[in-house]
């Protein structure tokens, strides 16, 4: 990942505009600038979890209690979270926006591969490809979670759009960041 992705400050402004009250997640190199801003934020409560699956249950509790939560995790943690996501936010119909930082997307691009490429054992074990990037979007699709992909700074509008879609459809909706926040 490079630093040409969304600006963390612009992302935070979108969360503020949408009235997000709590952010659950685990930082990675890509989302660290946003976590830095959130850790000092006066109105948005940051809950750093120990394992990503917790984030979906905590967020579901926050929502049922009247808050407006957001989850921020890496795509590796998303894969770990399958049953937590299914068993809480999806089953409950919780309007939960999820920002997923996309480890491996740069490698995938350098390898000339696109998300959605047909998977096989050879591709999933190639040393020049991080398999988590290959699996992220097919997994979201398989789980019935709508998603969009944000690549650069011009895509900041997708943050608010993702939140709006989650609320309108009353279910989790993901925004996959293919580059690190700057």
């Amino acid at each position: 990942m490079t630093g040409s992705g969304l600006q963390a400050s612009a992302c935070l402004a979108a969360l503020e505009a949408a009235g997000i009250t709590h952010v659950m997640g685990i930082p990675d190199n890509s989302s660290a600038p946003l976590f830095d801003l959130l850790s000092e934020h006066a109105d948005i409560e940051l809950v750093t979890v120990s394992r990503e699956g917790e984030a979906f249950a905590i967020a579901s509790g926050v929502w049922i209690g009247g808050g407006r939560p957001l989850v921020v995790i890496q795509n590796t943690g998303l894969l770990e979270s399958g049953d937590a996501l299914r068993g809480t936010a999806v089953r409950m119909g919780a309007p939960l926006p999820v920002i997923v930082t996309g480890r491996g997307y740069a490698k995938m691009e350098r390898a000339g591969l696109e998300p959605g490429v047909e998977l096989d054992a050879e591709l999933l074990t190639r040393p020049d490809v991080d398999s988590v990037a290959l699996l992220t979007e097919p997994t979201l699709a398989a789980w019935g979670v709508p998603f969009a992909r944000a690549s650069g700074r011009d895509d900041v509008g997708l943050v608010g759009a993702t939140i709006e879609q989650a609320r309108a459809e009353e279910r989790p909706v993901a925004l996959v960041l293919t580059q690190a926040l700057s």
């Binding site: 009250t21 709590h22 659950m24 409560e45 809950v47 979890v49 699956g53 917790e54 979906f56 249950a57 905590i58 967020a59 579901s60 509790g61 926050v62 929502w63 049922i64 209690g65 009247g66 808050g67 939560p69 049953d83 937590a84 299914r86 068993g87 809480t88 089953r91």
Partner: peptide, 25 residues
């Protein structure tokens, strides 16, 4: 009463979320 029918193990996490969003309850 809320009976979490899925997501084995995560009742405590959901309770944490409720407690954080409703500190008066």
């Amino acid at each position: 009463f809320f009976y979490l029918q899925h997501a084995m193990g995560l009742a405590s996490s959901m309770g944490l979320g409720i407690a954080l969003s409703r500190p008066d309850v």
